[in-house]
Amino acid sequence: MDHIEHLEHTESPANMKSQIWRTFWVLLALTLVDIVLYFVLLSSHSIAKNILFVFLGIVKAFYIVSVFMHMKFERKFLVWIIIAPMIFVCFLIWLALTEAGYTFGMRLF
C-alpha cells in the first residue's frame, strides 16, 4: 500500500446492491413490455406506436443513467453539464424530421 491516491467522489448509498437489482428487474420488465407490445401491435403502423416505444426507451435510459451510471448520486451541477446539451439533439430531431417531410413530398411528385 505504498501509492495510495487521494480520491474525490460522491458516496453510494448503503443499499446500493438492492438498488442495482431493482433497476435490473425494472429494465427487464420494460423490455418484456416492449416485446409484448410489439406483438400486440404487430399489424398497426402509427405515430402513436412509435412514440410509445421511444418513450419506453427513454424510461430505460433514465434508469441506466441514474443508477448504473451513478448519476442519481452526483452533484446537480455535473448532472446538468451532461443532460442540458441534449437539447441540441432534440433540435436536430425536430429539424431532420421536418425536412424529411419535404423530401418525402419531393420523392412522391
Binding site: A96, L97, E99
Partner: peptide
C-alpha cells in the same frame, strides 16, 4: 437521426 431522416423520406 440520419436513420430517422432517411426513413421518413420513404
Amino acid at each position: 437521426v440520419a436513420y430517422g431522416f432517411v426513413r421518413f423520406t420513404f
